[in-house]
């Protein structure tokens, strides 16, 4: 199944170039250059992975990550940064980011991480479904 990816970065040309390469690799990619709009997209749609730039105008990527994880804990976020500090990386992982990739990104490495994200999300969704089914069975007393 094609991985559904949301790519968020304020550098329009970067987003366009990377999105096209990901699509050539069979992925289904949405792009966004505005972090606030990206939050609406995350709430409105389901993605296997979100590739998120750490430093964007107006909003810190860490803040966007917090919002995403608060409302959609199963979402797999891969952070992208021009100059990642160790502190930022640790903070992001503690907040639930799946991984951290430094720019310029290697497309093969990124593709691998997106595939892992999709697999991880499927497991989480399956677990959640199983829990819901269990709850229904217990509460309905069948």
């Amino acid at each position: 199944m094609a991985e559904k990816v949301l790519l968020v970065d304020d550098e329009k040309e970067f987003v366009e170039g990377l999105a096209e390469r990901m699509e050539l690799r069979g992925m289904n990619v949405d792009t966004c250059t505005n972090p606030e709009k990206a939050l609406d997209m995350v709430n409105a749609d389901s993605y296997d992975a979100i590739i998120l730039d750490l430093q964007m105008p107006g909003v810190d990527g860490i803040e966007v990550l917090k919002h995403i994880k608060k409302n959609n804990p199963e979402m797999q976020v891969i952070l992208l940064s021009g100059h990642a500090t160790v502190e930022k990386g640790i903070e992001a992982m503690k907040l639930g980011a799946m991984d951290f990739v430094e720019k310029p990104a290697d497309i093969d490495v990124l593709t691998e991480k997106i595939k892992k994200a999709q697999a991880r999300k499927m497991i989480l969704v399956e677990k959640e479904t199983e829990k819901k089914v269990k709850d229904i069975i217990e509460h309905k007393g069948w």
Partner: peptide
């Protein structure tokens, strides 16, 4: 950022 765009 410039390098990242050139890379893509």
């Amino acid at each position: 950022n410039v390098l990242a765009i050139i890379n893509e």
